[in-house]
Design a protein around this nucleic acid. Sequence first.
DNA 1: CTTGACTCTGTAGTCTACTACAGGGTTTTG
DNA 2: CAAAACCCTGTAGTAGACTACAGAGTCAAG
Lengths: 136, 136
Amino acid sequence: MALMTIGKVARAAGLGVETVRFYERQGLIPAPARSEAGYRQYRDDSVRRLRFIVRAKGIGFTLHEIGELLELQATEGAGCANVQARAEAKIADIEVRIAELGAMRRALGELVGQCRGEGPVSSCSILGDALDGDRS
Amino acid sequence: MALMTIGKVARAAGLGVETVRFYERQGLIPAPARSEAGYRQYRDDSVRRLRFIVRAKGIGFTLHEIGELLELQATEGAGCANVQARAEAKIADIEVRIAELGAMRRALGELVGQCRGEGPVSSCSILGDALDGDRS
DNA sequence: CTTGACTCTGTAGTCTACTACAGGGTTTTG
DNA sequence: CAAAACCCTGTAGTAGACTACAGAGTCAAG
């Protein structure tokens, strides 16, 4: 399983062939070696990289942000401080998202709790309250 | 501050006028009352609703999902069980997102930890490892 | 009472992230 | 050794979420 065609990496990563080529055009994955006939030849670390992209996308990162995350990983020797700073910024970003998702989950939890049975659903405005209440 | 024009709600919510009209077309906010001249007249709860949309969007919900969240809140009396089920599904959804963001944050944290100083950044591949390692 | 800021409807353009051909060559398999 | 299944490049179309006019009416300050 040393080298595989685009169809195989795509399937392994759960993507379409066109999407893999698209990611290559976007610079998210490096252009792979080519066979004599011009076929792309991938090694299995490409699958890892593609899976990473899929997961990051699922979490809500844009392709551009994913590109940044991948660069963090790739940046060689020099600019370690830079890499670190960017990683920290990303972490802060993620923590904000987590906190806000937590607030939303709590609000929905309360909604479910109060909705128990067949009440008048009048308290469903909790949702809005809990979520737009504090903003500072 | 009983009634305001679209420009004012837009500014209060941190959006453009066109975007507010767009959200109305999409059914995310109700069509407001109109002045004699046909101007939209908003009450300040519109600002809350718009801010909710902005925040939910920031967290990574699509407009469609936001519409669903807002419906949960709005559904009157009947269909409480339905509302509950949908809220629970949304909670499960949110928890998955939180977990994945947590994994990503931990991975980035490790990256930052190891990158401390000015090492050769060779260990930066942690990023990939931690994130695509477990998938079952 | 004019001028500039604001609003209206409606349509069209932009950006992101794909997705789908067209038209052609290559590899594999029955 | 065909025929199916793949791969190639390049272009164009789609869906979501805006964003920007055009052309016209309205309101508020000086």
